[in-house]
Simulated scan of single mutants.
Amino acid sequence: MVSPPTPQLTTLPATTPIEELVAVIKRDGGLIVSGFLTPEEVEAANAASAPFFDVTAATQVKNQDLVEMGVDFHASNTKHLRGMLGKLPEHVSKIVMHPVWNGIMHEILKTRVEAYVGEDLLVTETSHIISLAVGFNVGPGANDQVLHRDQTIHSVNAQEGSLYTSDVGCLVAGTRSTKKNGATRVVPGSHLWSPKRIPKVEEAASAEMEAGSAMFWFGSTYHGAGANTCTPGEENDRRILYGVFGCQDFLRQEENQQLVCPEEVARTLPLEVLKRGGWTKGAGGCGFVDARDPIHALGFPQHAANKALKAAAAAAVKA
């Protein structure tokens, strides 16, 4: 009997046009983008994250605060660098402002809404924001993680054959990811499955990738971290990943970016990062303070630049 082919994810370079990258993600449910960050950018991110990982305790199974997905949801012997935007603002900003990250998030998460306001047709195209920014340091002996769908955090039920998703995952490799050190397992095509279908481990592909590569996947795609079976001290025995996930701009973020990022840090962030972090209103108006952008209420210096951009955009529409 001929064995079925081993499931695999497609890998394309970061120079690939966004429409081609998105087409593959829509077809397979996930994709690896090589050369997303340069070696120098990866080295800088690893150096900046090291002090935080050094003082972070590894996760222990059945001893977790986040239990909505079950007490065994997080893999053991894994350090989580939560609130990463506030701790590594420069490096998270590089990811958030990356044209590939923004392009993929926008094309998959955008929604065009048309509705009359009186007799005038209002057309709105929603955008995306950061849902979660977290680092992972996976050590030898880490168990595998259960296969799951991320969009359950938004209480979104998958529909068979549907390309709708509330969020998109992104993991940037800080070290080489191999099957042996626990490369994320992804089930190709599972974003199109009925919610009644149970994922099987043998259907999953190991998302092996080099440092600096990034994996993107639908929130409806089944996936989960693999087991790290390395021996302590061997080459590539630890797997470091930087996760910057996106969701639709009218949904609640998985991690509250405004609270995990100190105000003194937020005041230094580029305007684009503040927009993606939820410090401005969504395209449809969600998230206001006194009907205005939060950065106005907080007196952020970026408010003036944001106001000027909105004025220019309004003028362009009228023209």
Results as ranks from 00 to 15, higher is better:
Met1Asp: 07
Pro5Trp: 10
Leu9Phe: 14
Ala23Pro: 04
Ser34Gly: 05
Ser34Ala: 07
Phe36Cys: 01
Leu37Pro: 03
Glu41Trp: 04
Ala45Gln: 03
Ala50Arg: 15
Pro51Cys: 07
Phe53Thr: 04
Phe53Ala: 13
Phe53Ser: 03
Thr59Gly: 13
Gln60Arg: 13
Leu66Trp: 15
Glu68His: 15
Met69Thr: 02
Gly70Phe: 06
Phe73Thr: 07
His74Leu: 10
His74Arg: 14
Asn77Asp: 06
Asn77Arg: 14
Thr78Lys: 02
Gly83Ile: 04
Met84Pro: 15
Leu88Lys: 09
Glu90Trp: 00
His91Cys: 04
Asn102Trp: 11
Asn102Ile: 08
Ile104Asn: 11
Ile108Val: 11
Glu114Phe: 12
Tyr116Thr: 12
Tyr116Cys: 03
Leu121Asp: 09
Val123Trp: 04
Val123Lys: 15
Thr124Asp: 07
Thr126Ser: 14
Ala133Met: 02
Val134Leu: 01
Asn137Trp: 05
Gly139Trp: 07
His148Gly: 12
His148Tyr: 02
Leu163Glu: 05
Tyr164Pro: 07
Thr165Val: 03
Arg176Cys: 06
Ser177Glu: 07
Thr178Phe: 06
Thr178Gln: 00
Thr184Leu: 14
Pro188Arg: 04
His191Ile: 06
Pro195Tyr: 09
Pro199Ser: 06
Ala207Thr: 11
Met209Ala: 14
Ala211Ile: 03
Phe218Met: 14
Thr221Glu: 01
Thr221Gln: 01
Tyr222Asp: 11
Ala227Tyr: 00
Asn228Trp: 00
Thr229His: 00
Cys230Met: 04
Cys230Ile: 00
Pro232Asp: 05
Glu235Trp: 12
Asn236Asp: 15
Asp237Ala: 00
Ile240Ala: 13
Asp249Val: 01
Arg252Gln: 13
Glu254Pro: 05
Gln257Ala: 11
Gln257Pro: 06
Gln258Ala: 15
Gln258Ile: 15
Val260Asn: 11
Glu263Lys: 15
Ala266Cys: 03
Arg267Met: 11
Glu272Phe: 00
Glu272Gly: 00
Leu274Lys: 08
Lys275Glu: 10
Thr280Tyr: 08
Lys281Gln: 08
Ala283Lys: 03
Gly284Ala: 13
Cys286Thr: 04
Asp290His: 10
Leu298Cys: 00
Phe300Glu: 04
Pro301Met: 00
Gln302Ile: 05
His303Asn: 10
Lys310Asp: 13
Lys310Thr: 06
Ala311Ile: 09
Ala313Thr: 08
Ala316Phe: 06
Lys318Glu: 13
